[in-house]
């Protein structure tokens, strides 16, 4: 990156460290933090949407929808989440390829599950074998996002369902007495009021989501854990920057990163909670009203 880094063997001390920390692989390492942040930024709203759908289904008037909604929230309970992560990624991958296989190669006669192999026709491969490496990474990332959203959506559904139940019944009855329809009550009264009840649960979920991001590594995405292991491992003199096993320091750095994320989230979420409590019929809202008078 810097011109002074052309001959690493001659460097000493700080300038060596500076050159070492700006090698191409380290730049990749820094970008992978962006991967993690992107995952968080994409997964959080998606999971919230899944959760919203799940919660709405769970309190639907129709038995079938109710069973699906409750089943979805109950699905993730009692089973370690990592099992879901490992399971869904392969299952989704195979599901998509199986579907493409049915569409694109209808006259393929060999069985797909042949003994120990899962074999579809070459045209059904997703992404295509000839596609650039980038698309394989993107595909892997998208599968990871869907998996995260599915699992965390179940938890968000649970939280939102509880929050919807927690909105005081009188509020809804008042709205009904004013002649609002079922949908209007839901949109104008229930949803605006439920967030204050949902926020503690959702902030908890956000913290858990942050702490779940290292599992990306298990899903085969080149995330920060992958790079920390890769870069930290001891390098012989065959490399430009030989060093002993430094994985401990790399993982310490990741630990500090996650602790900082947690701390920042705590501060921000406390503010949001404060803001949402304004004018609500809760203890916190009442305390704010008293303080303002």
């Amino acid at each position: 990156m810097f011109s002074s880094c052309a001959a690493p063997d001659t460097l000493q001390g700080l300038s060596w460290l500076l050159c070492y920390l700006t090698t191409g692989k380290h730049i990749d390492f820094y970008w992978s933090f962006l991967t993690v942040l992107t995952l968080l930024a994409v997964t959080a709203p998606t999971a919230l949407a899944f959760g919203f759908g799940g919660a709405m289904m769970a309190r639907s008037q129709y038995l079938a929808l109710r069973i699906i909604g409750k089943g979805y929230t109950a699905m993730v309970r009692g089973i370690p989440d990592i099992v879901f992560f490992l399971f869904f990624v392969i299952a989704l991958d195979q599901g998509i390829e199986w579907f493409m296989h049915q569409v694109r190669c209808p006259d393929w006669t060999d069985p797909i599950r042949n003994g120990l192999e899962f074999r579809v026709c070459p045209e059904a491969k997703v992404p295509n074998n000839s596609a650039a490496q980038l698309w394989h990474s993107v595909y892997g990332f998208v599968l990871a996002v869907i998996t995260f959203a599915l699992v965390f959506g179940a938890f968000a559904a649970n939280v939102l369902y509880g929050a919807m139940q927690a909105v005081p019944r009188e509020q809804l009855e008042t709205a009904e007495a004013y002649g609002m329809s079922h949908g209007q009550v839901f949109r104008r009264v229930l949803v605006p009021q439920m967030w204050v009840f949902a926020l503690p649960g959702l902030s908890n979920l956000w913290m858990i989501l942050i702490k779940a991001t290292p599992l990306l590594f298990l899903l085969g995405v080149q995330d920060i854990v992958y790079w920390a292991r890769e870069l930290g491992g001891s390098k012989t003199s065959a490399y430009a920057y030989p060093h002993p096993d430094w994985r401990l320091y790399y993982f310490l750095f990741l630990m500090v990163f996650y602790l900082a994320m947690t701390k920042v989230s705590e501060v921000v979420l406390a503010r949001v909670q404060n803001r949402l409590s304004l004018g609500q019929a809760t203890a916190a809202g009442e305390a704010q009203r008293r303080a303002a008078v």
């Binding site: 942050i210 702490k211 779940a212 991001t213 290292p214 599992l215 590594f217 854990v225 920390a228 292991r229 930290g232 096993d245 994985r247 401990l248 993982f251 310490l252 990741l254 630990m255 996650y258 602790l259 947690t262 701390k263």
Partner: peptide, 22 residues
């Protein structure tokens, strides 16, 4: 409490392993 609740268990495992092999 902050350190063990604020960081992923996964990273804690990695960190502990790397520290213990040293």
């Amino acid at each position: 409490i902050f350190i063990f609740r604020g960081s992923p268990l996964f990273i804690q495992f990695f960190l502990a392993y790397e520290a213990l092999v040293l």
